[in-house]
Design a protein around this nucleic acid. Structure first.
Length: 949
RNA sequence: GGACGCUUAGCUCAGUUGGGAGAGCAUCGCCCUUACAAGGCGAGGGUCACUGGUUCAAGUCCAGUAGCGUCCA
């Protein structure tokens, strides 16, 4: 073995072997355990969030697999509608190729499939590097045939159940991408803007209570005034009582619109008069519905002013009687240009009262980055109220549990106000809506055109055209847990693995995905009693991985870290190139370069997959974002190295030697019994923490045991036995060395798959463990009979002894190499026994030349002292220890002890405490007092003795 | 404006019926001792954001304040 752990030399070969041998497939035996991967974008690449969540999923899967479950981690990818379509459009533009529209739908979709073929392997290759034990043979894609069929089936059935409908509604329209987007894809940003106060002249010579012949309305979007269909006031507002039911003349277009009363209006805000534009504002849309106001659309899909307004009834049907004309000079203007023109015109007509600065919430498309326009369009919707009710109940009654629990509130609050889900998107990449129209516009829904014709008796000469739109990507991913298992067929997989066990995901998609998955699954999948099945029993919600300063990682900030760069390392130049290449805003490149040079002056070293995974595990405390910390990664790389070298030590002392595999008498040392007991505790704690999803504590437990117990103490304690012990003692210790290490490797394997497998291959035969791979070995089980309390107490005594000597050595600058002699005072029978049993350990670990027990009553020479309970260890000062240094050391200890005594005495002299505290607390405090006082007394005595020299 | 979360050592974070304030990294000192210098041994370091309350006892429970963050309107 090399003296340093070199992950790059082992990882890929091990993974390839695992995959080839089919270890990732469910065993087909035992209780089922299933995790569905949140499908990453097929054309995307791996980021830290993926690495984090996948590490957790893999650890869980490996744990359950080892624990005898029929474990499946289902692989799959998502077609990511808008994102992918945009990437390909940009790519075409960059190559000066034809635009999407020049190519036409079919050709363009071909280009996307080409792109998928080209880039689709990137992320799966990266995921393999993480060591993920996904079942690759079952890999699915949301656009593959099976899943597409599931999508069609769901759509048709929902339509038949009247849970899908089509209608003209106000939607969030992205004028750049020219598609509807869901409100979840809208990001509201605070923007410093203006609010314009406009005068709307009253019709028919009316006057306000204050004598004006106009009303003043305040608006942040003056350009929409072309589509106003009312002015509203609060019904309780006394200022405008007389005007309710009267009309104003809308400036510029000279249309008469009514003055209405509605509670929606805030009397305190502005003048208390609000313009109502139902076709261009969500609140106004609701007001319009209540008052049966016409909806007047004045914007095109590209957000330019129409030639004339389109008027609709509130049910979305065209209103051909009313007209909404638009002056020629405004026609075709882009929305912000139109705003300027309208303001200018109002100003010249003296209808602009004032402009005030105003903080607006402005909606932006999170993909396109442009301002979203509420726009009236024909869209498909899922009626979600009923499904939402069932889905809410599943969480309320505990069928589905969120970890951490507080996310349930987030879920409930979203579910309470849930709106019908707009599922149509005006894109080309995605599942085309299975609806056809005849020439009159009548709609027919079916699995395909043939079925539609058959079901509706439509002869071949009737022209049918399929709906141009595709479904929201989340529509197909909402079916993920069951479509991947073969639904709508009632497959064995479905029966075996559904409901799945855990969903591991970020809180940011609880609404997008988790909620919708629960709704869809419970609607379509029932158990044998007809009860809706949940998609998963637990939702483990992870935090976000941020950079070291707590900023979100994003390409535009240039602070993205590729998990593979942590694993393999990367030079500074390559990293800068990666972060600044292919930028949408080249301006930022210089800034990013500087930042990167500062953050990673030496580039990034290789750390290996296991270190990365262990770090992510250690940082996974629940309910909290994670600030990435390179130092932490480095620390855990060192940990891997520690494991490597500890194993090297074990192998050096056991390979080709008698470890008791063939039987033979053995004698276990105190240390052997102790480490076996500590291992049991570690096994128990580790399991508990995994079961509670406390991966940070899992990491901590494994680290503590491996380094602070196994390496620091146990391996050291084996040295005297292996050097000087009898044959049967050596055999016992060798056996313990290999069994403990072999168990520890299995215990760590779910988190650190590679290093544990590599070492296990060599250690297993020595420990009589048979099998081809650690992956299929049983997960360690707590064995109470291996915990020997007396052994643990004895070793604690031993450690105290050694630490006492080391402390004096350290404080007194006595070289660790220099053997010293100690005297013992006040030695009890128990001390005497322990001393005899552990003399060799003491001599070896504390580097002692001799240990001499002073006869009772004898004081011994002037010495530095350490305590082990009541027993005192004396290190004679002569020639070794400086008087003043020892006095200083003692004074420090005295100060500390005095503080402790004062604290405990204070507590115990408090009558109320003594009267009220439970007995066990009281006893504990009393014991502490006795101990502290005795220690203080001894220290003072010692101090006096030394100072008297 | 509403809801939730956070504030503990220089940094990143644990702290689970209220009873000893912890880890890793960083710092300081001594050591190249045949598993490991990516190491060993030893040491120092905190008014648990602030104020008040409940309690014999509060990092922990309650109320409020401040700062930061996220989601929603």
């Amino acid at each position: 073995m090399e003296t340093k752990f070199n992950p790059s030399s082992i990882e890929q070969a091990l993974y390839q072997a695992w995959e080839e041998k089919g270890y990732f497939k469910p065993s087909g035996q035992g209780e089922a355990y299933c995790i569905m991967i949140p499908p990453p974008n097929v054309t995307g690449s791996l980021h830290m969030g993926h690495a984090f969540q996948q590490t957790i999923m893999d650890a869980l899967t490996r744990y359950k697999r080892m624990d005898g479950y029929n474990a499946l981690w289902q692989m799959g990818t998502d077609h990511a509608g808008i994102a992918t379509q945009m990437v390909v459009e940009r790519k075409l533009a960059a190559e000066n190729g034809p635009s999407r529209h020049e190519l036409g739908r079919e050709k363009f979709i071909e280009k996307i499939w080409d792109w998928k073929a080209e880039s689709g392997g990137t992320i799966t290759k990266q995921m393999r590097r993480l060591g993920n034990s996904l079942d690759w043979e079952r890999e699915r894609f949301t656009m593959d045939e099976g899943l597409s069929n599931a999508v069609k089936e769901v759509f048709v059935r929902l339509y038949q159940d009247d849970l899908i409908y089509r209608g003209k509604r106000l939607v969030n329209w992205d004028p750049k991408l020219q598609t509807a987007i869901s409100d979840l894809e809208v990001e509201n940003k605070d923007k410093q803007g203006s609010i314009w106060h406009l005068r709307y002249p009253l019709a028919d010579g009316q006057k306000t209570a204050t004598g004006h012949d106009y009303l003043v309305v305040a608006t942040t979007r003056p350009e929409t005034m072309l589509g106003d269909s009312a002015v509203a006031v609060n019904p309780k507002d006394e200022r405008y009582q007389d005007l309710i039911g009267k009309e104003i003349i809308l400036p510029i277009v000279n249309r008469r619109v009514p003055i209405i009363a509605d509670d929606y209006v805030d009397m305190e805000f502005g003048t208390g008069c609000v313009k109502i534009t139902p076709a261009h504002d969500f609140n106004d849309y609701e007001v319009g519905k209540r008052h049966q106001l016409p909806l007047i659309n004045v914007l095109s899909p590209t957000a330019e002013i129409l030639v004339s307004g389109e008027v609709y009834f509130t049910d979305g049907t065209a209103n051909t009687q009313e007209k909404a004309e638009i002056p020629e000079n405004l026609q075709g203007l882009e929305r912000f240009a139109a705003r300027k023109a309208i303001i200018a015109q109002l100003e010249t007509e003296a209808l602009l009262e004032k402009i005030e600065p105003h903080n607006n919430k402005v909606p932006y498309g999170d993909r396109s980055g442009v301002v979203i326009e509420p726009l009236l369009t024909d869209q498909w919707y899922v009626r979600v109220a009923e499904m939402a009710k069932t889905a809410t109940e599943a969480v309320e009654n505990g069928d589905i549990q969120f970890v951490p629990k507080q996310y349930e509130n987030m879920y409930f609050s979203w579910m309470r106000d849930i709106q019908d889900w707009c599922i149509s998107r005006q894109l080309w990449w995605g599942h085309r809506i299975p609806a056809w129209y005849d020439e009159s516009g009548k709609v027919y829904v079916g699995r395909n055109e043939e079925e539609v014709r058959k079901n509706h008796n439509l002869s071949a000469d009737i022209e049918l055209s399929q709906d141009d739109d595709v479904l929201d990507t989340w529509f197909s991913s909402a079916l993920w847990t069951f479509s991947t298992l073969g639904w709508p067929e009632n497959t064995d997989d479905l029966k075996t693995f559904h409901p799945t066990d855990v969903l591991v995901t970020g809180f940011d998609i609880i609404f997008f995905w988790v909620a919708r998955m629960i709704m869809m699954t419970m609607h379509f999948i029932k158990d044998e009693n007809g009860k809706p099945q949940v998609p998963f029993k637990t939702v483990y919600v992870t935090g976000l991985i941020r950079d070291e300063e707590g900023n979100k990682m994003s390409k535009s900030k240039g602070n993205v870290i590729d998990p593979l760069d942590m694993i393999d390392g990367i030079s500074l130049d390559a990293l800068v190139e990666k972060r600044t290449g292919n930028m949408m805003q080249p301006k930022l490149a210089e800034k990013i370069k500087k930042r990167t040079e500062k953050e990673f002056a030496q580039g990034i070293e290789a750390h290996g997959t296991d270190a990365l995974r262990f770090t992510l595990t250690a940082l996974a405390s629940t309910g909290r974002d994670i600030n990435w910390d390179m130092k932490r990664l480095e620390g855990y790389r060192n940990f891997c190295n520690k494991i490597w070298n500890a194993s090297r030590y074990v192998l050096m002392n056991t390979e080709a030697q008698d470890c008791g595999q063939e039987g033979g008498e053995t004698e276990l040392s105190l240390a052997d019994k102790w480490i076996l007991g500590r291992l049991q505790e570690t096994i128990q704690t580790t399991r508990q923490h995994i079961d509670n999803y406390r991966f940070d504590l899992v990491a901590q437990t494994l680290y503590e045991f491996s380094w602070n117990q196994f390496c620091d103490w146990y391996l050291e304690l084996t040295k005297p036995v292996l050097n000087e012990g009898s044959e049967i003692q050596q055999r016992g210790t060798r056996q313990t060395l290999v069994t403990v290490l072999e168990s520890l490797l299995r215990l760590m394997h779910p988190v650190m798959p590679f290093i544990t497998e590599e070492i296990w291959q060599r250690i297993a035969p020595l420990a009589n463990a048979n099998g081809e791979t650690i992956m299929q070995q049983p997960y360690p089980v707590y064995q109470a009979q291996l915990v020997e309390e007396s052994a643990i107490a004895d070793v604690e005594w031993l450690k105290q002894f050694i630490l006492g000597v080391r402390n004096i050595r350290g404080e007194m600058n006595i070289s660790p190499n220099k053997p010293i002699s100690v005297l013992l005072r006040n030695v009890s029978a128990n001390d005497q026994r322990r001393l005899e049993q552990n003399k060799n350990f003491l001599q070896s670990l504390a580097k002692l030349e001799s240990i001499e027990v002073l006869p009772a009553g004898e004081k011994g020479p002037a010495s530095a002292t350490a305590f082990v309970g009541d027993m005192e260890i004396l290190i004679p000062m002569a020639g070794l220890i400086d008087k003043d240094a020892e006095l200083a050391r003692l004074q420090k200890a005295i100060d500390k002890a005095e503080k402790e005594v004062a604290r405990v005495v204070g507590k115990l002299s408090n009558e109320k405490f003594v009267n009220n505290a439970p007995a066990h607390v009281l006893d504990k405090e009393k014991a502490k007092q006795a101990e502290a006082e005795s220690a203080l007394h001894k220290l003072k005595e010692q101090f006096n003795e030394i100072s008297a020299i």
